[in-house]
Design a protein around this nucleic acid. Structure first.
Length: 157
DNA sequence: CGCATTTGACCAGCGC
DNA sequence: GCGCTGGTCAAATGCG
C-alpha cells in the first residue's frame, strides 16, 4: 500500500467515519480528543466486543457451533491483562486511519477463513498497541479489527 | 536517508 | 510425541 492516507471512495465523509471510530475508541482507550460526534447513526455499523472474544464465529454463522464444550464466561488470567477490543466494521477496506500510525508487521493465513489476517503494530514511541485485522469469511464486506493494548498517547497528529 | 511495507521462517502453545 | 495454528521477528525492497 503506497497510500498512507486512504480515502475510501464510498465514504465521502470519511471524516465522520474516523470521528466515530475515535469516539468509540475513546470510550475504551480513554482518548482525550473530543470529537464532535454529530452522526451516531452513520452508514457504518460498528460492533464492539470487549474483553470477550469468545465469538470465534463472530462474524456470524460459522461452521461448527455444536461444540459447546468450552464455556467462555471465565477470564483467562494467564499473563498480562491486555485489553482486547474487537470491532466489527462494515467496510470494504481494512486500513482506516483512526488517528494512529500502524506498521504492518505480519500477514498470516488463517484456516478459519480463506482470507489472510493482517497484523499491525503502533509505531509510536512508548506505544505498544497491536491491532489485528481480518476479513469476515462469510461476509467479505465486513472487517473484524481487534485492538490489543491501550494507546498511551493521545494521537499522532 | 528514513521508514513503511512485504514475504518467509521460526517459535510457542495446545490438541490429539 | 508429533502436528497444527497462530503469532512474532527479521531481512530486503520501494517509496516519500
Amino acid at each position: 500500500m503506497s497510500d498512507k492516507n486512504p480515502k475510501p471512495p464510498d465514504y465521502s465523509s470519511d471524516s465522520d467515519f474516523t470521528k466515530q471510530w475515535s469516539s468509540e475508541l475513546s470510550g475504551y482507550l480513554n482518548l482525550d480528543d473530543d470529537w464532535p460526534d454529530d452522526d451516531p447513526d452513520s452508514f457504518v455499523s460498528c460492533h464492539v466486543l470487549t474483553q470477550d472474544i469468545q465469538a470465534n464465529e463472530g462474524g456470524g454463522s460459522t461452521s461448527h457451533e455444536g461444540s459447546s464444550s468450552r464455556e467462555v464466561g471465565n477470564e483467562h488470567e494467564k499473563k498480562e491483562v491486555r485489553d482486547r477490543v474487537a470491532f466489527i466494521t462494515k467496510s470494504e477496506i481494512e486500513i482506516m486511519d483512526d488517528g494512529f500510525k500502524w506498521r504492518k508487521y505480519g500477514k498470516k493465513k488463517v484456516k478459519n477463513s480463506p482470507n489472510p489476517r493482517n497484523y499491525y503494530k503502533c509505531s509510536v514511541d512508548g506505544c505498544s498497541v497491536k491491532k489485528t485485522v481480518e476479513r469476515d469469511k462469510d461476509d467479505p464486506r465486513y472487517v473484524i479489527t481487534t485492538y490489543v493494548g491501550i494507546h498511551t498517547h493521545p494521537s499522532h497528529s
